[in-house]
Design a protein around this nucleic acid. Structure first.
Lengths: 238, 238
DNA sequence: CGCGGTGTTGAAAATTGTCAATAATTGTGG
DNA sequence: CCACAATTATTGACAATTTTCAACACCGCG
């Protein structure tokens, strides 16, 4: 309700390789700086945008973590993703000019606001940006297909193993540990994302711990046997 | 293996309002005609493209129906969508330059091949086309989020009801009956899409028939009580 | 220090999957 | 055109997985 707005630039952002096209000339890079209108801080539990809200901008996450959540008419809801630094959210709003999901900060976070009409304008001139926008959208389509595979054909243990491996891999790509992670979301949110009840998530985590695959202490998870987790996701007989 | 290639034009295609931007000037429309390189016929059970294949083009379906299918490393597979006339497939290939799923014709079909580099080139000049491409990709993202909601939070009856209503609604938008439809896919394929076993699909269909919601004769389905189906998808207490 | 939100665990119930038998349909080749 | 094979669909009985309901523990914050 009281977002802070701050002027900034991509050209010296340390997340550049995560959310910007590569191989830009200095002049192109400078023009892209102009895309980011402002930064905006979003506190834990606050929404960046919500279902029904007019779509104006895409958001690049600078710090923190978000969940996107779909709520059906009858109140059922589904977490559709967890997004971290360098990832882009808001793509759902393009098609109808308003958002169709909520984006909620899981911790105090900061995003770069990129007005979409400026993105469209500039991507007509900077080919690398055009390509990049297409890639970001295609990547999201492919990611969601992977979630469909998970939800449609995996059992609880496989889903949770895939979830943990995916999270830690993305964190590692951002310079964090290859084996330790902090879950910023509740068991209930993990369950919603994985199509499981929170009790099932909790039980499955306990079983992983009992089997020596992970060490769990609250939201701190240490992956002890990544190979065993991987073999859960892709069963042995292959 | 022996695709037929035929030259054609969008400007007088009867599916124009389904797969092309609206409000184009005659000169813009003519330029868009140039996007469609060829038409290609794909026979039932043949693939339009498959996982790993180099990505070059998007495809607009002219006639027939396809399924897209994801196959995981261990051989598990997941149907990620059923596409019909006027819909676009191939968006998965943009991000990495190769397709990450298979597109299989469920009946003898015909598609328009649209080389993606031409689409990018032209959408730099024709704003309406640029916007259209973004909308198509965003629409696919939103569609997949809906499937995630279905797979993550609905039970078998709800999933199947949602599936039937979605299919018949899309068919109706194409001039077909509001209540009768022909399933071009097997029970197994429906089950894969809905995260259910084929036996569950069959049983649930039988139950719908016993309850007087639908009439099922092989792949011919008549929806007798669309309201009851809708109330299954969105349970009464709302 | 207590309270609300979060997490764990057990037992029973519900849903869906598995296995198996059979039927119906479609495609194929003689 | 018919017969046979292969594919697809239906149904039942039973098993496995996950959910539901409930009780209780833990933690962090005011």
């Amino acid at each position: 309700m009281t977002p802070q707005h701050i002027k900034v630039a991509c050209s010296n952002c340390n997340l550049r390789e995560l959310c910007m096209p590569i191989g830009l000339s200095p002049v192109e890079l400078q023009r892209i700086d102009e895309i980011v209108a402002t930064r905006r801080k979003v506190k834990r539990r606050e929404t960046l945008f919500h279902n029904g809200e007019d779509f104006t901008s895409l958001y690049a996450i600078r710090t923190g973590m978000f969940k996107t959540r779909l709520t059906s008419e009858d109140g059922r809801d589904q977490v559709t993703g967890f997004q971290m630094a360098g990832e882009i959210i808001g793509l759902d709003g393009i098609v109808n000019g308003h958002h169709t999901c909520d984006a909620v900060a899981l911790e105090d976070s900061e995003v770069c606001t990129m007005p979409f009409d400026r993105i469209e304008e500039l991507s007509r001139e900077v080919t690398a940006l055009q390509r990049h926008v297409h890639q970001i959208m295609s990547r999201e389509i492919v990611r969601e297909q992977g979630v469909m595979l998970l939800l449609g054909s995996m059992r609880a243990e496989e889903r949770l193993a895939a979830f943990l491996l995916n999270l830690v891999q993305r964190l590692h790509a951002r310079g964090f540990s290859r084996s330790e992670l902090v879950l910023r979301m509740t068991r209930d949110e993990i369950g919603s994302y994985l199509g499981l009840k929170l009790e099932t998530v909790s039980r499955t985590l306990s079983k992983f711990a009992a089997d020596g695959l992970v060490e769990v202490e609250q939201r701190n998870v240490r992956i002890l046997d990544p190979e065993a987790l991987r073999s859960l996701v892709n069963p042995p007989g292959c």
